[in-house]
Simulated scan of single mutants.
Amino acid sequence: MIGDLTADQAAAASGRHPDTIRRALADGSLHGKQRTRKGRWLVEPACLAAWESGEACAHHEQKSNVVPFRDRSAS
């Protein structure tokens, strides 16, 4: 079983530039995770394959309870 890929490994596997992968991760079009804030990105191979084929991975279909800071209203 293959583990999660770093952004550089995902770039090498997909033939894309690492900055392209990082931009896709940052804008949410490619599903990935960070263990710590501003940590390195990790991508599951299935998510990378779905992104390359223009589909959403199963993770994107799940609802998250995380609200980005910029979307929170001042109370």
Score class of each variant (00 low, 15 high):
20 T>L: 07
39 G>P: 10
1 M>G: 09
13 A>E: 10
40 R>T: 05
19 D>I: 03
65 N>K: 13
22 R>S: 10
21 I>C: 13
14 S>K: 03
41 W>L: 07
53 S>K: 09
60 H>T: 05
23 R>F: 06
47 C>M: 05
68 P>A: 05
65 N>H: 12
36 T>V: 11
64 S>W: 09
62 Q>S: 12
65 N>D: 11
57 C>F: 08
2 I>S: 15
17 H>V: 12
37 R>S: 10
57 C>R: 15
68 P>Y: 04
72 R>I: 10
29 S>F: 05
48 L>A: 10
34 Q>S: 00
50 A>R: 06
62 Q>T: 13
16 R>N: 07
4 D>L: 15
47 C>P: 00
37 R>G: 10
72 R>P: 02
72 R>A: 03
30 L>D: 06
74 A>Y: 13
1 M>Y: 00
62 Q>P: 00
56 A>H: 13
32 G>V: 12
73 S>K: 08
14 S>P: 07
27 D>E: 13
18 P>C: 08
25 L>I: 06
39 G>M: 08
33 K>A: 12
55 E>T: 03
68 P>V: 02
54 G>K: 05
13 A>Q: 13
24 A>H: 03
13 A>D: 01
17 H>L: 14
57 C>M: 07
24 A>D: 04
7 A>H: 11
28 G>D: 08
35 R>P: 00
18 P>S: 08
35 R>C: 00
17 H>N: 15
55 E>L: 04
58 A>N: 09
36 T>Q: 07
46 A>F: 08
41 W>H: 08
56 A>E: 14
27 D>G: 09
7 A>R: 08
51 W>H: 02
20 T>V: 11
58 A>G: 14
62 Q>R: 15
50 A>L: 06
72 R>M: 14
64 S>E: 10
35 R>K: 12
28 G>C: 01
19 D>A: 05
29 S>V: 01
65 N>C: 12
53 S>G: 04
52 E>I: 03
66 V>E: 09
6 T>L: 06
56 A>V: 11
7 A>Q: 11
17 H>M: 11
54 G>I: 12
62 Q>M: 15
75 S>D: 15
53 S>F: 01
19 D>V: 02
35 R>Q: 09
7 A>F: 05
50 A>V: 09
11 A>V: 05
64 S>K: 08
40 R>E: 01
48 L>D: 01
9 Q>G: 06
3 G>P: 06
39 G>D: 02
15 G>P: 06
49 A>P: 04
71 D>H: 10
67 V>L: 13
67 V>S: 02
28 G>A: 02
5 L>D: 01
51 W>V: 12
30 L>M: 11
71 D>N: 06
73 S>Y: 05
51 W>S: 09
30 L>F: 04
22 R>T: 14
25 L>N: 07
7 A>V: 07
69 F>I: 11
9 Q>N: 04
